[in-house]
Simulated assay, not measured.
Amino acid sequence: MKTIELLTDPQFKTGFHVLGINPTINHRKIYKHLDYQGEANPTNRPIWQMAQWWTPFDLCESSSKKVLDNYIYDTPSRHIEVNPKTGYLKMDLSGSKEYPNGVRKNGSEPWSHLLIEQDFEQSVSVDELKSLTLKLTFNIESVKDENLGLFNPNLHAAQLLWYFVIHDTGIEGSKGYGNFKEFFWFGIPLYDNRYPFIEESMHVDQGGIGTTGRLIYSMSNRNYLKEPIQFGKTYHIVVDILPFVLKAKQYALDHGYLKKHDQANYQIGYMNFGWELPGRFDVKSYIQGVSALAVLK
């Protein structure tokens, strides 16, 4: 059996290429390379991107320092700390600084993101897979409510999420996120402050500026977490998501979210991971040991 690690550079040795603040204007343009003060491994293409949608404090203007083997980047609202020797990545985001004028008041307002992203150098077809096993060690150190007593669960949340894109190369032949035309989102949620567990869901990515209008299928985190998240506790997850990916693909076809045709070839082409803060929360977390291992039939 052939196995393929979909993630290139799972230890973040090549640094992060910072995207802009506004996805509708900046799109996928890279503005800065967090290159560990020139010590990141060189590559012939950008591997990891970092999205900072809708922040008032551009990471391109962050401070930078090295402490032992950790490279640290700070803005007034973000703290990024990376150890490329161990694959450790700390991602802290302060909603109290991101929303200086108060909480979001309606669902059409954009919200803060802190995401790492990657287009896969080698995509795989889901129908050719025997398994697709995700591994991750993570710790949510704290989530502090700074919603000024105005918390509304319909508008405000702190979410730690992992997404993949399943796209049809048979209809468009596109490559790279931003060029995918026929696709859906597949979610592996880790945390949502509103629920002890996150249940399976299917909905359309819509409402805010820059949303894609595509189906989002999210599996329940009961499949890989045995208890509600305890702050400060380290979790190690290992889960084969292939049965859920196939279920989501069939749902998308049956409900018209994907076009049916004989040349369809559904591949896994992209992932992102990190915090989305529709709410005014201060969050601290780290990850390590990230992997997406595909086993072919």
Rank of each mutant, 00 (worst) to 15 (best):
V165L: 13
K233S: 12
A294E: 03
E81D: 13
K85D: 15
H236D: 14
Y195I: 04
I116W: 13
S220W: 02
Y177L: 09
D92Y: 00
T3W: 03
R194G: 05
S131Y: 06
R280G: 12
A158P: 00
V204H: 14
A51C: 09
E109D: 02
L134K: 13
W111R: 08
V143K: 01
V67P: 02
E182Q: 11
G107H: 12
S131K: 05
F180M: 09
D192C: 01
G87L: 07
P76H: 02
S64W: 08
G87S: 06
E109G: 00
T86I: 00
Y191G: 02
E117V: 05
D92I: 03
N41V: 14
N272E: 07
K175C: 11
L253N: 10
D240N: 15
I268Y: 10
T234K: 03
I166L: 06
K97Y: 03
T3Y: 10
H113S: 14
E98L: 02
K65T: 11
S64E: 15
T14V: 01
T212P: 12
H79R: 07
M91P: 04
H17A: 01
A51Y: 10
P243Q: 01
E109P: 01
E39N: 11
T3D: 05
E227T: 09
S94M: 15
G187R: 12
F164Q: 09
M50V: 15
F244N: 14
V124S: 04
F186Q: 03
N272F: 15
H261R: 03
V239M: 09
T137V: 12
D145T: 09
N193W: 06
N154R: 12
T212E: 13
